[in-house]
Simulated assay, not measured.
Amino acid sequence: MTVATGRARRRRVALAGLGAAFVAAFAARVLLGDYTFTVPDFFRILFGEQIPVSTFILMETKLPRAVMAVLVGLALGTAGSLFQMLLRNPLASPDIVGVSLGASAAGVFAVLTLGLRDDAVSVFAIVGAVVISGVVRWVAGTTGGYRLVLVGVGVAAAMVSVVQYLLARSNTYDVQLALRWLVGSLNSVQWPTIGVLALALAVLLPLLAVLARALPALELGDDAAAGLGVGRHRTDLLLLVGVLLTAAAVAAAGPVAFVAFMSGPIARSLMGGRHSLVAGALVGAVLMLLADYVAAYLIPNTVLPVGIVTGAVGGPFLLWLLARGAATGRTG
């Protein structure tokens, strides 16, 4: 067996393992917890049978949270891997370059200053993410890479200041409404919101699959990609899709910290050092399902926002990644 064949086999095994982990995490989130379901009961309720109490808990609480966790995880995991592939930097996730915070700041502004709610706030969040990403790209120029990450960090810090100012001048009730735009939460998930996010992914993911054919060339660098006939505009289009994936997820659940950031490096490690959008998406979905399970049951009678759990894990992960980069003379 050649080296190439062995690597290809490892990647297939890794994807199969991630698929199995995804199914197991989804089953655990739906079937286990403080109110458990058997597999037969799950499918009986899913296909319309009414079981007192059980039907309500499954269809209005557990299942919508699990489905939302999957969709948000897929969106953020894909976006994180895409950013890191295009910018050739393991720190270049939507969390780091300001996209998530741009959406959050716009959402908080809509809630606290304009008094908007629900879908109108989501629209503001998406617009905020797109505008901030455009500002970061414009200030960073065409060099990309570490310059874009540094500019993104600066813009993200500015967005934090905006959010803090808005919170400081608002009353307590309005601040409570804005909290989901600060930490990320799957609490009180509604099926219509899930439907909108699912529709967004149904449009963006196939578009990404078409555009991603240029990724092998773009990973070689802008000059090499240009020599292969792939222009810089393709990079900008792919980044825009990544921004929209992030914005859709943030609009639905708030800025769930570090999922996009963690998904890329974990997927790359499992895939033997090779980037994979599919692996990144699966890792993101698994991380969201596990984090939401912990958020729901870590503290009895208390349901934490999922962003608290992902932030608690992602912060040390970032420090570890930086420490490993310092030890090996590289980042990531």
Rank of each mutant, 00 (worst) to 15 (best):
V121D: 11
G128Y: 09
L298R: 01
A202N: 05
V99L: 12
P255S: 00
A140W: 13
L240A: 07
R232K: 10
P90V: 13
G227V: 12
Q176E: 14
R29F: 02
L186M: 06
L205G: 15
S54L: 01
I57A: 14
G195R: 03
G141K: 05
G145F: 12
R117T: 15
V149P: 00
A224R: 12
V303T: 04
A279C: 12
H233V: 15
G284P: 09
L46T: 08
M1H: 06
L244Y: 01
F258P: 03
R88L: 00
A253F: 05
Y146C: 05
V30N: 14
V139C: 11
R180A: 10
V3R: 09
G134M: 06
H275K: 00
L220K: 12
V196R: 15
L245T: 10
P316N: 10
P52Q: 15
D95G: 14
L298I: 04
F83L: 08
V121S: 12
V136A: 07
S276A: 09
V151F: 11
L116Y: 15
F22M: 09
A24C: 09
A66Y: 14
V294S: 12
L239M: 13
D34S: 11
V203F: 09
A212E: 04
I299V: 12
F47E: 01
A212I: 03
I132Y: 03
G128F: 02
T113L: 07
G152D: 03
L245E: 02
R330D: 09
A198Q: 08
R268N: 13
L15S: 11
A281L: 13
F109D: 03
V303M: 02
G152A: 08
T302Y: 03
A157E: 06
L238N: 01
S188N: 15
D222E: 09
R11S: 14
I132N: 10
K62V: 12
F43R: 07
L91W: 07
T36R: 15
A209E: 04
T2K: 13
T193M: 05
K62A: 10
L287N: 05
V278C: 06
A327T: 05
L116G: 07
A209N: 10
G128W: 04
L32W: 04
A140Q: 00
K62C: 02
V309Y: 00
L298Y: 09
F26C: 12
V97N: 15
V97L: 04
R65E: 05
V283P: 12
V175P: 14
M85T: 11
L82I: 01
L282C: 06
P265A: 08
V123H: 02
A248P: 07
R274N: 10
G77P: 01
F83W: 12
